[in-house]
Nucleic acid binder design. Structure first.
Ligand SMILES: [Zn+2]
Ligand SMILES: [Zn+2]
Ligand SMILES: [Zn+2]
Ligand SMILES: [Zn+2]
Lengths: 130, 130
DNA sequence: CCCGATTTTGACAACCATTTTCATTTACGC
DNA sequence: GCGTAAATGAAAATGGTTGTCAAAATCGGG
């Protein structure tokens, strides 16, 4: 099932370094002349998430942000809190730990969320130079 | 700096098993006859969080939920996705992993968020019993 | 093509947790 | 008591997200 709008939204995310909000994607597309509505952007993002083609997470301010990740497999993110640059990281150790801590307490169907934040090399440099 | 309202809100959280939303806490206090405003509940919760006396996290639906944790030290949570029952867990391995994965990519000032979800023993039992 | 059926779209309104405003009440120092 | 500063809360504003629904695009025969 293909969809032109959905592909356009997906493409915007592909061109992005880090996570982007729906409003943000919408603004960029409009700025570039695309004739698309905010509602459709939300729907496209939701569809991409449901399809596993895009990762989503919540910011501390309660905003959903999206990213087209290279890997379709389960992974986590190392995000620069200044510029948003994101690196995909695998963490077998964390996967095992989460599973272990869950079963240890008798819990089943264990899932987890893990995000790592920091200041990336270039942003650190800018701060020093700043 | 003491504060009657703040203590009342803190007490409600202490009596709770898992994380509670601001609206939820407010509703309970009103139901018990307390004469308090929603705004004040929000302010009290924020103050408790700033003071490190309460942990906060965001639900998938974008709602902030709060919990009075026994430990003031850095820790994480194992939360039952059905009844909300929460266990505080320490994870030295995760702490080291997060720090390592960050420095490995040249990131500094590394922080992280980790939450583990599952179905607790009693909820599993209830499901089987139907 | 032509038309009716189906899906997609998007302007606008509705939602809802949270924040801001601001007038009133309470607490504190003297 | 009195004056000042802090706390309170009702009501309005905010803002991201979702629901509504009629118009527009797409599809599939005939
Ligand atoms: Zn950066
Ligand atoms: Zn994982
Ligand atoms: Zn449970
Ligand atoms: Zn930790």
């Amino acid at each position: 099932m293909s969809n032109r709008r959905r592909d356009a939204v997906h493409e915007v995310l592909r061109q992005s370094e880090g996570f982007r909000s729906a409003q943000d994607v919408y603004a960029e597309m409009r700025a570039e002349g695309a004739k698309i509505g905010l509602t459709t952007v939300y729907r496209a993002l939701q569809a991409l998430v449901d399809n596993g083609q895009v990762d989503v997470l919540r910011t501390g301010e309660g905003e959903s942000v999206y990213r087209a990740c290279a890997s379709g497999d389960h992974h986590h993110h190392l995000v620069c809190r200044r510029c948003g640059r994101t690196v995909e990281v695998a963490g077998p150790a964390v996967e095992r730990w989460a599973e272990a801590v869950g079963t240890e307490h008798g819990f089943t169907e264990i899932t987890h969320t893990v995000e790592v934040f920091g200041t990336c090399p270039s942003c650190s440099a800018n701060v020093k130079a700043g």
